[in-house]
């Protein structure tokens, strides 16, 4: 059976659709693509697709993934190759969602379980680079960072320091809607305890007037190295980012 892995962006206005909406957008696009997508059994069959790590509504991304299973009898030779298929599917998606690459992959670990680290580019509005760098410095130099969390009505304290792989303030950033802002790069680990971007911002920039969050990469680790589920030949940093 053939499984196709799509890598795509979620940029601009479309970043405000939630996960359910995203699933429906893909469902319609796949139907229009006329790819022989396998369906689930039952009364209302759905296409067999597997989404990767969820992305919060309102966050942008330069690297989202979707795995699509094709029917048993799908003929490998008749399926367009990577770049052609990407070019074929992109026009079927809303503006801001561009398929950057498609590959036939082996069925293996689920995307969600495989991804160990995500890289984030965050614009923090209303907080100056010096203030932010200060707080980032304090946080990163701490050995333990206790965070109070409520899960299933039970409150626990967790040390989230292991989830903080990298935090870096990279100068000021401007927008019409704020006076000063800072650019922050973050690498956060997905394994428990895990740390959400929103939680991170609550820790270091609670007074932010607006934050613009973009997932730039998702990483799979193995043999001491890391790689993306599908890596692009070249990495034009943020070149795909559309003005919104």
């Amino acid at each position: 059976m053939i499984r196709l892995r799509f890598r795509y962006t979620k940029l601009g206005k479309i970043r405000f659709i939630g996960h359910r909406d995203l699933a429906r957008v893909w469902e319609r696009a796949l139907r229009r693509s006329e790819l022989p997508v396998a369906s689930t059994e039952g009364f209302s069959p759905r296409p067999k697709v597997h989404f990767g790590l969820a992305l919060s509504t309102g966050f942008e991304s330069l690297g989202e993934y979707l795995d699509v299973d094709l029917t048993e009898d799908a003929d490998e030779a008749s399926i367009a190759s990577g770049p052609d298929l990407a070019a074929q599917v992109t026009p079927l998606l809303p503006e801001g969602m561009d398929v950057q690459m498609v590959q036939h992959i082996d069925r293996g670990q689920s995307l969600q379980a495989a991804v160990a680290v995500c890289s984030w580019r965050i614009e923090v509005g209303g907080v100056s680079p010096t203030v932010l760098a200060d707080r980032v410095g304090t946080l990163m130099s701490a050995e333990v960072v206790e965070m109070v969390r409520t899960r299933k009505e039970r409150t626990t304290e967790q040390d989230i320091r292991p989830s903080l792989q990298l935090l870096e303030v990279d100068g000021p950033v401007e927008r019409v809607t704020w006076d000063e802002g800072s650019l922050l790069f973050a690498e956060l680990r997905t394994a428990p305890p895990g740390l959400k971007v929103a939680e991170l911002l609550e820790l270091i920039a609670p007074e932010a007037v607006e934050s613009r969050v973009c997932r730039t990469h998702q990483w799979i680790e193995g043999d001491g190295a890391r790689q993306e589920p599908l890596s692009l030949a070249t990495h034009p940093p943020y070149a795909g980012m559309r003005a919104s």
């Binding site: 206005k13 479309i14 405000f16 659709i17 909406d21 509504t57 019409v176 007037v209 607006e210």
Partner: peptide, 18 residues
Amino acid sequence: HLEKLLPRVQKPARYIGC
């Protein structure tokens, strides 16, 4: 100006068109 407000409302996708 609007995109700044949308993270603070229910169902922001109501307002994006697309």
